[in-house]
Amino acid sequence: MSINRKELEEIATLAQLHIPEQQVSQITDSLNQVMGMIEHINGAQTSGVEPMAHPHEGWQQWREDVVTDQSHKTALLKLAAHADEDHYLVPKVIE
């Protein structure tokens, strides 16, 4: 498995990363190097094996439907690079 320039672009779009033109070939090479290593799993015999998503053997725990938290508006908006007194702000989105 290896990827080409077009596939790199698709991955970068999904991952929302900016790849400068001069880095395209270097990044493609480095990803292909890792993919080459990952390839190794293809040889493994895994038919009938149940995928393991989690090492934890238990079941999910839940909480009661109770409000336990209060507003953090000021603290939250203070963390943002760009906000007014009520909202986070982003460049205009056209739907």
Binding site: I11, L14, M35, I38, I41, N42, A44, T46
Partner: peptide, 24 residues
């Protein structure tokens, strides 16, 4: 980028799911 690729359609079964089986 590696992770995005491994989860993307067409590769999920061959890589992500396969890796989970190996984990088992």
């Amino acid at each position: 980028m590696i992770g995005t690729w491994a989860l993307s359609s067409g590769y999920y079964d061959a890589y992500y799911l396969k890796a989970q089986k190996i984990r088992r």
